[in-house]
């Protein structure tokens, strides 16, 4: 029996994007609804304040999950984890998307959950956001007054705080092509193998020429108020020789950047230790000796 009283909720069912944007601009208290894998839970547990949902599922412009433009991938706000898993092109060009998608819940969640929903749900434990950040994703936001894009790694400002105005809708996620020959890493640490909320996640890539690190991305989940791009750790690594000294320095830098907490799912101590060990595992796997 759901906890919530549905009497407090209603739904707009727009068919076109402009309709949706006008509703967002003109109506109070409107909450966009995509696959519902987060919102329905919040609703059922009685933790959602009364609102009007803006059902995005019927919007004509959003029906194609992907499009390609100038070598960039554009994901529709309705693009689900399942869509990503079954698209061969996406899997070849952005393998981390597929690895992350596989570990978001299970098949029946992946068929409904969307990448855009994961972005705006803004959970520090988000499983989709980290790999998007690794690929330098940009968030396209649209309102009746115009369109703008924000780099995803600048999108969060605090716990559940985002660079999104109440009349703006995420209308696309844009991914540039990642560099060739990078070495990727993804590891989600959760209380069990699948269908579990992340305790610590580390993902990234590293681009090496001989033993020197040309470029890298390091993104972590569940160790800060929002998905964290570890820029300082990256800057220690960038340009350095990938050796044990560098790894040591990177591990120290990471400790300075993360701020994990104790909660019912894990402890700060554990998260801190494991985050560092994952970084170590990643860097060792990317070392010249491993290849």
């Amino acid at each position: 029996m759901p906890e919530a009283s549905l009497l407090d909720f209603s739904v707009f069912n727009p068919r076109r994007l402009d309709e949706a944007l006008s509703l967002l601009a003109e109506e109070e208290n409107v909450v966009p609804l995509a696959g519902g894998t987060d919102l329905m839970v919040t609703l059922e547990t009685g933790n959602l304040s009364p609102c009007r949902f803006l059902n995005l599922m019927g919007i004509a412009e959003f029906q194609e999950p992907f499009s390609w433009c100038d070598g960039k991938l554009r994901m529709s706000p309705l693009c689900s984890y399942r869509d990503t898993r079954i698209d061969k092109d996406v899997a070849t060009r952005y393998p981390l998307l597929v690895r992350a998608a596989r570990e978001v819940g299970v098949l029946a969640i992946q068929s409904r959950g969307t990448w855009a929903g994961n972005i705006v749900n803004a959970s520090p434990a988000a499983d989709g956001v980290p790999v998007l950040m690794v690929y330098d994703a940009e968030v396209e936001l649209r309102s009746t007054s115009g369109t703008r894009t924000v780099p995803l790694c600048d999108f969060y400002r605090g716990y559940k705080e985002m660079d999104r105005a109440s009349d703006e809708l995420v209308t696309g996620i844009i991914l540039p092509p990642p560099p060739e020959d990078r070495i990727e890493y993804f590891r989600k640490v959760a209380p069990r193998r699948l269908q579990a909320i992340t305790k610590v996640l580390l993902t990234g890539y590293l681009l090496r020429s001989d033993d020197r690190i040309e470029d890298c991305r390091i993104v972590l989940g569940s160790v800060a108020p929002f998905t964290l791009r570890a820029r300082e750790t990256e800057s220690i690594l960038r340009g350095s020789v990938l050796d044990s000294e560098t790894i040591k320095a990177a591990r120290a830098a990471l400790q300075g950047e993360i701020s994990p907490i104790d909660d019912i799912r894990s402890t700060a101590m554990y998260r801190r230790n494991v985050a560092e060990r994952l970084l170590d595992e990643f860097l060792l796997s990317a070392s010249p000796e491993s290849h």
Binding site: V41, T45, P191, R192, R193, A196, I197, I264, R265
Partner: peptide, 14 residues
């Protein structure tokens, strides 16, 4: 941790 999400039992994968 009285939510199904937060009480962890093994699944087929574990």
């Amino acid at each position: 941790n009285n939510q199904y999400t937060n009480y962890i039992i093994p699944t087929t994968a574990d």
